[in-house]
């Protein structure tokens, strides 16, 4: 028998659930690929969000049953989805007019790194072998009113993702407003990373040790 490693902080599902609590009723929301997609499972009772997918659908519904769906009803990750009653389709220039024109209320994205001034790096590690691929990430961060990041606090090999300055190529400058990790909820303030909430069972020191920049404690009331 191997002993299970101690798990500290929120699971991916709990992180997604935590983000969902902060999304106002009636929001138009664009969810990035990966952990952000989980948020759709945790819409709080009494609230309604409308999901935008940049390949031309407003009113994206849940995934169809395995093996179901159709090849020309897909999301930005090219996975088959459904359309809710009241959904609409549109072309790419209109879709990005919704994004760039500030019509989408909130976008939740994954991250490779977030800097204390709100810079985001999430499209390339800058490696010489990597084929660069950006998709719609730069448009989303430049145009959507509010950008949240949902990410593990550290990389798989323990490196901090929250840093003073991003070392990876940027997706956007000063664009992130909040970060939801397994360990904490952190606001990007003018003074830097402002702790908003610690995950259950996690101490300030524990999070600070795993953060690559100064963390401002929750102000005492």
């Amino acid at each position: 028998m191997t002993t299970e490693q101690e798990v500290i902080g929120r699971t991916r599902e709990q992180m997604a659930e935590r983000v969902a609590q902060d999304i106002p009723d009636g929001s138009y929301v664009n969810l990035g690929i990966g952990i952000p997609e989980l948020i759709a499972h945790y819409v709080p009772e009494g609230r309604e969000f409308i999901y935008h997918t940049e390949n031309g659908l407003l009113g994206m519904g849940p995934s169809p049953e395995v093996g179901g769906g159709e090849p020309e009803l897909i999301n930005a990750g090219k996975r088959r989805v459904t359309a809710i009653s009241g959904a609409c389709y549109f072309h790419h220039a209109d879709s990005f007019a919704m994004i760039r024109g500030g019509h989408i209320d909130l976008c939740v994205l994954g991250a490779l790194q977030v800097a204390e001034n709100g810079d985001l790096a999430n499209w390339s590690t800058g490696g010489a072998d990597a084929i660069p691929a950006v998709g719609g990430a730069m448009d989303l961060v430049a145009g959507v009113k509010t950008i949240y990041v949902i990410t593990q606090h550290n990389t798989k090999d323990g490196q901090p993702k929250l840093v003073e300055r991003c070392s990876f190529p940027l997706t956007g400058v000063n664009v992130v407003s909040r970060i939801y990790t397994d360990l904490a909820v952190i606001e990007v303030s003018e003074k830097g990373f402002q702790l908003v909430e610690l995950s259950p069972g996690v101490s300030f020191e524990y999070v600070q040790e795993r953060t690559g920049a100064k963390l401002l404690p929750i102000p005492s009331k």
Binding site: H92, A93, S95, F96, I99, V134, G136, M138, D139
Partner: peptide, 10 residues
């Protein structure tokens, strides 16, 4: 030539 998706559409 890598172009952000919205910039490509526009």
């Amino acid at each position: 030539e890598l172009v952000p998706q919205g910039t490509l559409a526009e």
